[in-house]
């Protein structure tokens, strides 16, 4: 079972004040703390679990500048065998489709049974790279995957649907799956583990290495373009509850009660 996992380094914005940069199209990195995308963490874990079960290799792929090597080292520490970083200034401004094109060039000649991506990235949340990549590769794909079982050269996967439903689909290999959080319990990656991975080689590839031209990638090679980022306007319905935790929780409970939240 040879598995390629696509990972992305993203800012942790759960509690941070997100500041939109002057160009109105990006977010200021400022004091933001970066880490592997939450969904990708589960994808890497799932790949390593399958490797532990069936043997084979796990290759982690990411796209981005030097800093993204941290993310790949984390993948090594989780159990990946190889890592590839795709990097070129021409890649800037690529949308999900252009990113899928870049990854496609990097993986199409690799030997693989499965390619995993996270279901979506916590920063732009498109959820497109996996499906577009599958279509470029001409392989089947399944999205929002919550369980993977392999038998007789086929995968039986469970997909999360709306309203708490799941469906089970059988997919011939090779295939692309986008992995949902909760599919497993990602292991802790210790500092010692990351340090041990410090010496491992990370392959890099740029535009020319991948046989691409500037027309294929960046804004020119994209199907969508971010015009403007903005914070959602505060509407009248929103109420910021002030006061001590006791006061605030009492007020919150009252609101929920008034709106029929407790029955």
């Amino acid at each position: 079972m040879d598995i390629v996992v696509c990972v992305k380094r993203v800012p942790d914005t759960s509690e941070a004040d997100v500041i939109i940069a002057k160009d109105e199209r990006t977010v200021e990195a400022g004091d933001l703390v970066f880490d592997i995308n939450e969904w990708d963490k589960y994808a890497v874990e799932e790949a390593v679990l399958l490797k532990e079960k069936y043997g084979g290799t796990v290759t982690a792929v990411t796209l981005g500048p030097d800093e993204t090597e941290d993310t790949l080292r984390r993948c090594f520490a989780t159990g990946a065998d190889k890592a590839i970083r795709l990097t070129d200034s021409a890649f800037e401004g690529s949308d999900a489709a252009a990113i899928a094109k870049i990854i496609h060039q990097a993986v199409k000649d690799l030997k693989f049974d499965l390619i995993f991506t996270g279901t979506q990235a916590s920063d732009d949340g498109y959820g497109q790279v996996g499906p577009v990549l599958a279509s470029l590769l001409g392989t089947p794909h399944a999205s929002v995957v919550t369980q993977v079982d392999i038998a007789d050269g086929k995968a039986r996967v469970q997909r999360e649907l709306e309203g708490g439903l799941s469906e089970v689909v059988e997919v011939p290999l090779p295939a692309v799956f986008t992995i949902q959080t909760g599919i497993n319990e990602p292991r802790y990656v210790s500092i010692m583990g990351v340090r041990k991975a410090a010496g491992k080689e990370i392959e890099t590839a740029g535009l020319a290495d991948l046989g691409l031209t500037a027309e294929d990638v960046g804004e020119k090679g994209s199907m969508t373009k971010v015009e403007r980022l903005f914070l959602p306007p505060v509407t009248k319905e929103a109420e910021i509850i002030q006061g001590s935790p006791d006061e605030a929780s009492t007020r919150l409970a009252q609101i929920i009660k008034d709106k029929g939240g407790f029955s």
């Binding site: 942790d12 703390v33 292991r187 802790y188």
Partner: peptide
């Protein structure tokens, strides 16, 4: 821990220390 075997809540606490 070197094998990654730790309760999930403890894992989150350690990751919190590392990141924040």
């Amino acid at each position: 821990i070197e094998e990654g075997r730790i309760p999930a809540t403890a894992r989150d606490a350690l990751e919190g220390v590392f990141k924040h």
